[in-house]
């Protein structure tokens, strides 16, 4: 589709000049889809040819048993969906904890108390400048034995603490984006700082925070894969286990990647619908 099809006209009712042929050609839906398909096809073909040349034995027919099985006792889920559920559970718990810590850190930073913002900034700089993997090792090999928690708790804490630093920045930006007049209006009807946050400021920050927060959830789901290095049961760990049993690394890693992609895409699409709803609800 191009502009002249929409019946939009230029100044003084003159039709807009038609865009050059090459632009119209590349803008059309059919050509875009074709180009996209060709690129994807080339990548797939490239990996296929590469695998052929190294004598890789494709065994896609063995993959479905890891998705689901129909046995004599009936239908049962395979390891990949079970791993996915574990990943989602891990991510949800970590995200809730990360949000709570992140909100606390953001409020400390915005409290105006020197000690509060010092603690918050210290925490932020510390967490943001340690690699996630090292943080995981710290929690699992150092703090775990000291405080006596297991690998699952260690991985939840690692993900929560790491992402709380990023989430606190999202909260801070979202809260600062609300006009100061809103604070003054809330104060002037006698609200406490807590009431002002709860009823006036945070509800308005939501629409500023929704897009970066979605990005953060996607980021968290992806980084949850790292806990496979301490063998916590989740999607990536299960993938590794399957491969060590079957040696089908190409098929399984492609499948695992696709599962992550589907989950995060569904999430992004869902939230963009939510965003539109918010935008309609409070148009200003």
């Amino acid at each position: 589709m191009n502009v002249s099809d929409l019946g939009i006209s230029g100044p003084k009712g003159q039709p807009l000049p038609r865009p050059p042929f090459l632009k119209r050609f590349f803008d059309s839906v059919l050509i875009s889809v074709a180009i996209y398909a060709i690129i994807v096809g080339l990548i797939a073909y490239g990996s296929f040819v590469g695998a052929q040349s190294m004598g890789y034995n494709w065994q896609w027919y063995r993959v479905p048993q890891f998705l689901y099985r129909n046995t004599e006792i009936g239908f049962e889920w395979g390891q990949i969906p079970i791993g996915l559920v574990a990943t989602i559970k891990l991510s949800v718990i970590s995200f809730l904890l990360a949000t709570a810590i992140g909100l606390l850190i953001a409020l400390l930073r915005l409290s105006g108390l020197v000690i509060g913002s010092a603690v918050a900034v210290g925490f932020l700089e510390l967490i943001r400048n340690i690699p996630l993997l090292v943080l995981l090792y710290l929690f699992y090999y150092v703090l775990g034995p000291i405080f006596g928690f297991d690998r699952y708790t260690a991985s939840i804490l690692t993900l929560a603490v790491f992402h709380s630093a990023l989430i606190s920045e999202i909260f801070r930006a979202g809260i600062n984006a609300v006009h100061t007049g809103q604070w003054e209006a809330a104060k002037s009807i006698g609200m406490s700082p807590f009431q002002a946050y709860r009823y006036i400021i945070l509800p308005q920050s939501v629409r500023f925070m929704l897009p970066p927060m979605t990005g953060e959830v996607v980021h968290l789901i992806k980084s949850s894969a790292i806990v496979s290095v301490i063998a916590v049961a989740e999607l990536t760990t299960f993938g590794r286990n399957i491969i060590s049993d079957t040696y089908m690394s190409f098929e399984i890693w492609f499948t695992i990647a696709l599962v992550y992609l589907v989950v995060t895409l569904i999430l992004s699409i869902g939230v963009s619908h939510l965003e539109k709803k918010y935008a309609v609800d409070q148009q200003n």
């Binding site: 006009h179 007049g181 809103q182 003054e184 209006a185 809330a186 006036i200 509800p203 308005q204 609800d281 409070q282 200003n284």
Partner: peptide, 10 residues
């Protein structure tokens, strides 16, 4: 009462 009204938009 403020110059910019400061009503709660949500």
């Amino acid at each position: 009462v403020f110059q910019q009204f400061n009503l709660f938009p949500h």
